[in-house]
Amino acid sequence: MSLLAVQNLSLSFGGLKAVDDVSFSIEPGEVYAVIGPNGAGKSTLLNMISRFYHPSRGEILHDGKSLLECDASEIPARGIARTFQNIELFERATVLQNLLVGRQVHNTVPDWRQFVFTPDIMRAEREHRRKVEEIIDFLEIAHYRDMHVSGLPYGVCKKVELARALAVEPELLLLDEPASGLNPEETEEMGFWIDDIRRDLKITVLMIEHDMSLVDEVADRVLVLANGRVLTEGKFDDVKSHPDVVRAYLGETL
């Protein structure tokens, strides 16, 4: 069974059909990229999967069960984590605290009890910390651990946001333009991380990306959207020479 199956998904804002009858499915263990020109509906698609938007039609199945009755805050408990196109970190907290928020879904102690730091909370905190340290090691951000996010360079923030999503311990990771705003070296590095995430952590990745070098490097399969519709789907090499794709990117005249 597919890990994620999107079926006939549609959403309109007013009269504009942002996403129009999109279907695809993602198999466990693959890196699946969604590309397309600006305004193709890529981010809207991702926001529907992570339940910030509600589709007007269609179905999203995760492990065969619908995601549509979930609120956005219930998505990580289903094993799905995401990053944001414009970084959404907790600015006035340290990197460590940011990552620890990612452990929220694994918290079992009721809120009201936390005013006394009982031994079981202490144990749970140590365990959260241990998990977070693994991710810090994995992404090599130990240097920034105790720094406040507000002063960090953009590339590091991108990595911290990725780390925070990994702290959820998801089985499916949604990345919204992981390479936007990064320089070519950082983009290449991001490619290595995504590869490692798939190989070492066994996490399936759905990513939206504009940077074709990154897509070429990591993606197993590519879905091309334009004006909210699916143009084609397949391996990157096949897709990039597809006439519809060339036309969507370069315009009608060519």
Binding site: S73, I75, R82, F84, E88, L89, F90, V105, V168
Partner: peptide
């Protein structure tokens, strides 16, 4: 930490559960 998260970014707080 959840409170801090809500203070700094409600959107990503929600996305983290």
């Amino acid at each position: 930490r959840a409170m801090i998260a809500v203070r700094d970014s409600e959107v990503s707080a929600r996305s983290l559960g």
